[in-house]
Amino acid sequence: MRSIQELEAIRESTLENMTLRKEHNGTRIVVGMATCGIAAGARGVLTAFMEELAERKLIHVALTQMGCIGMCHLEPIVEVHQPGHETVTYVKVTPDMARRIVREHIEGGSPIEEYTLSHYRAK
């Protein structure tokens, strides 16, 4: 049995690690994983991000998920959050698009305009 003090120490060190992880460099890729997203192919998009981030060793980038944001017809939807930049929302994302987003936006620093929600709306 562990004492309360030991458990408290574990809790504190875990919390510290969690903060470390969350801070990263602040870049977050968020994939819509509600029923609508999954039905439209979000699982393959998420695993494509996972594989591309792993291959390129982009360990400072956090990959997370979100629920439905009310635009089910545009799923799979992906948001890229970077400190100091406006959030970029990509719509109707495929696994190939996901890999390109990692290369050009996350690594290269230039969002891919033609995949974005604003581009879709302007059409």
Binding site: V31, A42, R43, L46, T47, F49, M50, L63, T64
Partner: peptide, 13 residues
Amino acid sequence: ADTMAALIAANPE
């Protein structure tokens, strides 16, 4: 495997 990987990748907690 894809279902597990997607869940694991996006939910490290």
